Amino acid sequence: MGINGKLEVPLVGCKGIRNTEFLAKMDPFVIIQYGNQEHRSSVTKGEGRNPVWNENFTFNVDYPGDAVHKYKLIFHIMDKHTHSPDDLDGQTTIYLKDVISLGVEKGEMKLEPRKYRVVLPNQKYAGEITVGITFTLNDSISKARSSL
């Protein structure tokens, strides 16, 4: 039988991300994926290479999960365009298997917001993204464990 929980992801901001604009400032946003779930941040108009979002996102987690997503949280840092396709300014992948398994064991596991490297498809450094992660078991499971 699987265990259910929720993954809370506070997206703080980025620093020094790649600028894909020639003359204008970038309008960055982030697409966050966990398995087949996806969330989009707001677009920060004209904030350039150092955008701040301070937004929170929640994902449902099954443990053990299927082999498809392998407990990966993927951040695609994008530049919004009006008349052409959006640009990918970098990506960050955070592997969460240990965080989730400790959260299952303890009821909750929290990583305070910290910086992660943003890389380009060729693995070159492209700035940093600041995010936090909290995994919490669903209430019914937590209550059942605490009553034991």
Rank of each mutant, 00 (worst) to 15 (best):
R49I: 04
T134Q: 13
V43E: 03
N56G: 14
H76E: 08
G127M: 05
I94M: 00
K6H: 11
D27V: 09
Q123M: 15
F29V: 04
K110A: 15
L73D: 02
V104C: 06
H76A: 09
L88R: 14
S84Y: 09
H76Q: 07
K15A: 14
N50Y: 06
N56W: 08
H39D: 02
P121N: 15
D139G: 06
D79H: 09
Q33K: 10
Y125I: 12
E47I: 05
F22R: 15
K80M: 02
A126S: 11
P85V: 08
I17D: 06
E21R: 15
T93F: 00
L137T: 10
F22Q: 12
V118W: 02
M78D: 01
V119I: 07
K6F: 11
F22C: 09
I32Q: 00
K80H: 05
T134N: 10
M26F: 10
S101N: 04
H39Q: 06
E108K: 13
T44I: 08
E128Y: 13
D86N: 14
F57M: 05
S140E: 11
M78V: 01
S140Q: 12
D139L: 13
E21N: 15
F59I: 06
E112M: 15
G5A: 03
N122M: 12
Q123D: 14
N54S: 13
Q33W: 04
S142M: 02
L23Y: 07
L88S: 13
F57S: 04
P121Y: 10
L7Q: 01
V9G: 02
S140A: 11
L11E: 00
N50M: 07
M78P: 01
V118K: 04
L96H: 00
H81A: 04
H69T: 06
Y63I: 05
N50D: 13
L88V: 09
R40S: 09
H76K: 10
R18E: 10
A67T: 11
I133F: 02
T82V: 12
A24R: 15
F59N: 04
